[in-house]
Amino acid sequence: MMHIGAKRSLLTAILIAVVVSLFSAHFNRYYRDVAIDVAINIILAVSLNLILGHTGQFSLGHAGFMAVGGYIAAKITLVFGVTAVAWAQPLIFLGALLVGGIVAALAGLAVGVPSLRLRGDYLAIVTLGFGEIIRVIFQTSETFGAATGLVAIPKWTTLGWGFGIAAITVYVVGCLVNSTYGRGFIAVHDDEIAAGAMGINPVRYKVTAFVIGAFFAGVAGGLYAHQKTTLSPGGFDFMKSIDIVVMVILGGMGNTAGVIAAAVILTVVQEPLRALGPLRMVVFALIIIVLMMLRPQGLFSFGKKKGASA
């Protein structure tokens, strides 16, 4: 249950993020970048958790939505933002993030409407294919820099933006799932047929989860673009989607706190794991298999209801 102080905690979290952000020049550059990555991954993981964890729909295209948001936001900034006066830049950044998110949400709608009427297995393949198609489109489109991608994007993502939006994501997803309306997501997750018999329209809930999840993934993509300052189509491949899926599974599907913890841990250990090279993905694959067999509810879910594993 979302407690009464939720709104207050949200405002406090944003305030802290912004205040800390003012002092970010004093932090070690490397740690600051890792912290921003943590924030972006929290947004990605929490938004996928709405789709995969709460609603039980397996999407392998989260990196695709991220790519849509990232490319659109970066393009807007490059066209309007770079020449704008200093005071207008945060507004343009906000607008770029929002438009990126909305376009990603529309992409989510376009993918979701045909495939969500069907079983989960199809969805996995369609979303996988969608991610690939997005990559091919950006790779061939001259407007988006073709194979080189977009470069010289201003580095506007700060700790404040990152954690502020992460807090908003957690708040929105939390409020949504814990509202009367949001009980529908969990009902669809637990038993689609029973939910339908209770007068809940499973397709509408699934599409809603998909669109909202895609929106936040798009916003995260925008933040990512303005953090790395370059975008290339290769950065949003299937493996990126798998990274996010692993965060959600490790944290426990439907367990927001666990998913946030998993996003933080996996981002922080990312650098040491990079030394493993290709073995990193072998480790990820083993994590997936072993968790599914022994702890399908994730590492951080304790004594939860039976349905948590579904």
Binding site: G56, G120, D121, A124, V245, I249, M292, S309, A310
Partner: peptide
């Protein structure tokens, strides 16, 4: 089924 599906990807 979702568990099996994720395992298959793994």
């Amino acid at each position: 089924k979702l568990t099996v599906l994720i395992t298959a990807i793994g």
